[in-house]
Design a protein around this nucleic acid. Structure first.
Length: 382
DNA sequence: TCTGTCACG
DNA sequence: ACGTACGTGACAGAC
């Protein structure tokens, strides 16, 4: 259910902030313009204000004003930081804060729709409204989630798989180092940094761990040195050596990647361990960029797809659990690696413990599946 | 309807 | 020389 007061409060606050930021931007720009138009914004930045475009990417229209590009300018140009703030506020307002309250149904609840046959990897997708992309990464995001509440007398019980895709990567690749790390319940990003740099885990710096985290997520999608350099904000040479070192130490992962590329070349498709297939006909296109893209999808799909399969199994398992709670617990949301239930407040604690067991036992990998659960009155608390 | 952008996992 | 990490849905602007 939505707490209308939370949304009304946020709306008011965002409006006020937007007004101030907008005025400030117009002043710095020297004239009024529509800052929701990337075209007009680019003209202001790169023509009127003559901001150098040396390392700014181009798109079909001209110079990009995407946040990854603006980030490069933030330190030198105050107007850029203001534009970033404007964008964040505007996005939250127009996509969520001003829209969701009007979508509440007669029963007082917000209902989404799930598509089960849209995503190529086997994931669900959510629409009208999409409740799989409600903000969380910013402070305003957290405050918005506090506006999603359990019905009176109920609690929200959330349960999410910890590092499910990396655990699946360990499982599918059979990489001994990665498997050991998960079996010992290590901090996987710290372990990666430790292994690649050849230092003890306790000697891993925050910087090393941060880079390793980006690499762990990127590597299984076929990220190159260029991508890692951008994402981790390191130079390309360093990124290239980091990847080389990683693939040498995590030889099982390198082997998995090669195996998927070969499989898609031979068969024209890849599949998850449970048999879900994704056809990748572009592999035969002869167009280098399309072939490379198909290879990356071939590496990623068996991982992301098995995660989707496992969560679906967990949903089936939870159905059995729900039967036992006969109307005292219902499933509200699935968010890829996470399930959120609404449960009688008297049963929430017990339900959470049983749910954790069901989800962790939904499928057996070479490494344990780990689920963490949370209970709260609002989505913001879990 | 397409493009650019940005919210999430 | 080129493009550059996977999967989605929604919004505003431009045409």
């Amino acid at each position: 259910m939505l707490k209308q007061e939370v949304f009304a409060e946020l709306s008011k606050e965002i409006d006020a902030k937007l007004q101030i930021v907008e005025k400030e931007i117009f002043k710095l720009a020297g004239r009024d313009f529509n800052m929701n138009s990337p075209k007009q914004l680019a003209e202001i930045l790169f023509v009127d204000l003559n901001i150098p475009t040396g390392n700014i990417k181009k798109n079909k229209t001209g110079f990009s004003t995407a946040s990854t590009e603006l980030e490069k300018l933030r330190a030198d140009y105050p107007i850029v930081a203001m534009i970033e703030e404007y964008r964040e506020l505007f996005k939250l307002k127009t996509t969520y804060v001003d829209v969701l309250p009007g979508m509440v149904a007669k029963d007082g609840r917000l209902h989404t729709r799930y598509d089960q046959a849209v995503a190529a990897t086997g994931r669900l997708s959510s629409n009208d409204p999409n409740l799989q992309n409600i903000p969380i990464r910013t402070e305003l995001g957290h405050r918005m989630r506090a506006g999603f509440v359990a019905a009176p007398g109920k609690k929200l019980v959330g349960a999410d798989y910890s590092q499910i895709e990396l655990r699946i990567a360990a499982h599918l690749s059979g990489d001994e180092t990665m498997i050991e790390a998960f079996r010992n319940n290590e901090d996987i990003h710290r372990t990666t940094a430790s292994v690649v740099h050849g230092v003890k885990p306790e000697e891993v710096t925050d910087e090393m761990r941060r880079e390793a985290k980006v690499l762990n997520f990127g590597i299984i999608y076929g990220m190159g040195a260029f991508g890692l350099a951008q994402a981790a904000k390191i130079d390309q040479k360093h990124a290239s050596e980091f990847i080389k070192g990683y693939l040498k130490k995590f030889a099982g992962v390198a082997k998995y990647m090669e195996a998927m590329k070969q499989e898609v070349r031979e068969k024209g498709y890849v599949e998850t361990e449970m048999g879900r297939r994704r056809a990748l006909p572009e592999i035969e296109s002869g167009n280098v960029a399309l072939v490379r893209a198909a290879e990356r999808m071939a590496i990623n799909m068996p991982i992301q797809g098995l995660a989707a399969d496992i969560v679906k199994l967990a949903m089936l398992g939870s159905r059995e659990l729900l039967k036992r709670y006969e109307g005292k617990a219902v499933l509200l949301l699935q968010i890829h690696d996470e399930l959120i239930f609404e449960v009688d407040e008297t049963k929430a604690e017990e339900f959470g413990q049983e749910l954790k067991k069901v989800m962790e036992g939904a499928y057996t990998l070479k490494v344990p599946l780990l689920v963490s659960t949370d209970i709260g009155d609002t989505w913001g608390e879990i």
